[in-house]
């Protein structure tokens, strides 16, 4: 068997394993999906709330769409983040981390399988949230550029995968509380990325970080594609920064993970189960 075929097979091991885990925890998955939908709807209803509180002088429907796009995209990106960062956290919980890190595969293969599953899982979640939002708010996507939206999601996934790989280092370095520490990364990205408000409302110094967050470009681009129906070529201004960020973030994430793994092996941190 060629090395490439073996690496592909090993990568598929993570996809199949995660699928089996989701299947076995189906009740939890259902709860999580309902929670996600309810949470997204609650955020979107704030738009209609504004209209009522503003005495009818505000376009509530626009706010609903604005918030709905933010929450849908954010759900997509954060689900990817959590699945990828969980590549260590989950195995620490189960006590299998040593067996996986002892296998003769590259870390790239390991990450590729985990992220491929994360992207598919997240796309399915996003589709359900989008469908629920459309049904609750009677939204039609006749004018929306769905292919452009999909392109932005995929381009945004790359840089989020890189960031998530860096996040996965935390459970490796801090066996007891590392998984919880990853929430810090996602909270900071939520703050600066304009998920529920335009980034212009942030203090000037925080706006600098919004330019560095890939979520800012995905969300702004998604609003242009879904709310304004912007054609795909006009989305290039959002896509190219995402591709550049992805091209930097993924190799950087892998390198940082490699250092962290070596550190964990030097200090004996793999063995302790958190």
């Amino acid at each position: 068997m060629t090395t490439m075929a073996q690496e592909f097979k090993a990568s598929y091991a993570f996809i199949e394993r995660n699928f089996n885990i989701v299947k076995r925890y189906w009740a939890w998955e259902l709860v999580w999906l309902v929670y996600t939908v309810a949470n997204s709807l609650a955020v979107s209803y704030i738009g209609l709330g504004f209209e009522k509180l503003g005495g009818g002088g505000l376009d509530g429907k626009y706010f609903v769409l604005y918030l709905a796009v933010g929450t849908i995209v954010w759900r997509y990106l954060s689900v990817i983040f959590y699945w990828v960062t969980d590549l260590v956290g989950l195995e620490r919980w189960e006590g299998t981390i040593e067996y996986t890190l002892m296998a003769p595969i590259t870390r790239f293969t390991h990450m590729a399988g985990q992220t491929a599953f994360a992207v598919v899982y997240s796309l399915i979640h996003t589709a359900v949230v989008l469908a629920a939002t459309m049904a609750f708010f009677n939204i039609t996507l006749a004018k929306a550029n769905l292919w452009g939206f999909l392109l932005l999601l995929i381009a945004g996934s790359l840089s989020f995968i890189g960031i998530s790989i860096v996040g996965a280092v935390l459970p490796l370095l801090f066996p007891e509380r590392g998984s919880q520490m990853t929430h810090l990364i996602i909270a900071m990205l939520l703050l600066v990325s304009g998920v529920y408000y335009p980034v212009e409302v942030l203090p000037q110094w925080l706006q600098v970080f919004s330019w560095l967050s890939p979520a800012t470009y995905v969300i702004d681009g998604a609003r242009a594609a879904l709310l304004d129906g912007a054609p795909t070529p006009s989305l290039w201004g959002y896509v190219w920064p995402l591709l550049i960020m992805g091209a930097i973030a993924i190799p950087a994430g892998l390198r940082i993970f490699h250092w962290a793994e070596a550190y964990a092996k030097r200090t004996g941190k793999l063995h302790r189960n958190g």
Partner: peptide, 14 residues
Amino acid sequence: MENLQYGARLYGVS
């Protein structure tokens, strides 16, 4: 079986 399939695939076993 699911655990072993996972473990074996990491070593290139079909």
